[in-house]
Simulated scan of single mutants.
Amino acid sequence: MAGPTTARRGERKPKPKSPSGSSRPPKGSKKKPAARQKAGAAGARTGLGRLLPRLSRRTRLVVRVVAAVLLGAGIGWVLYGSSWLRATHVEVDGVEVLTADEVREAADAPLGEPLISVDTDAIGERLRKRLPRIESVDVERDWPHGVSVEVTERQPRAILEKGGKFIEIDGMGVRFATVDRPPRKVPRLVMEAPADAPGTRRFGRARLEREGVRVSASLPPDVRRDTLVIRVRSYDAITVELTGGRTVVWGSGERGEAKARSLTALMKAARGANHFDVSAPGAPAASGS
Rank of each mutant, 00 (worst) to 15 (best):
R130I: 03
G282V: 00
H145F: 07
I75E: 10
R231S: 11
A107Y: 01
P4N: 08
E168F: 12
L98N: 02
A285K: 02
R188L: 13
A258C: 02
L51S: 08
S117I: 10
L70F: 09
P26Y: 00
A197P: 01
S18M: 08
P114K: 05
R9Q: 14
V174M: 02
L98E: 06
L48W: 11
V65D: 05
G146Q: 03
S29V: 07
E168S: 13
K15Q: 08
K30A: 11
V215M: 09
K32R: 15
D236M: 07
G212D: 01
F176N: 03
V63A: 11
A158P: 07
V95I: 09
A2S: 15
P187Y: 08
G146M: 09
V240K: 04
T243K: 14
T247F: 04
S23G: 10
T6C: 00
F176E: 06
S289F: 15
L242F: 11
I159V: 15
K165V: 06
D101C: 00
T120E: 07
A39D: 15
V278E: 01
A34W: 14
A107H: 03
A206E: 15
T59R: 05
R202F: 07
S216E: 09
E211W: 12
S117L: 13
P16Y: 01
G94S: 08
D180R: 13
S18P: 03
G72N: 04
V179C: 05
K185F: 10
L160R: 10
H145I: 04
E105T: 03
A100I: 04
A283W: 01
S262V: 01
A44V: 15
R214E: 11
E135Q: 11
W84E: 10
K17S: 05
L48D: 12
K129G: 10
P114A: 05
A217R: 09
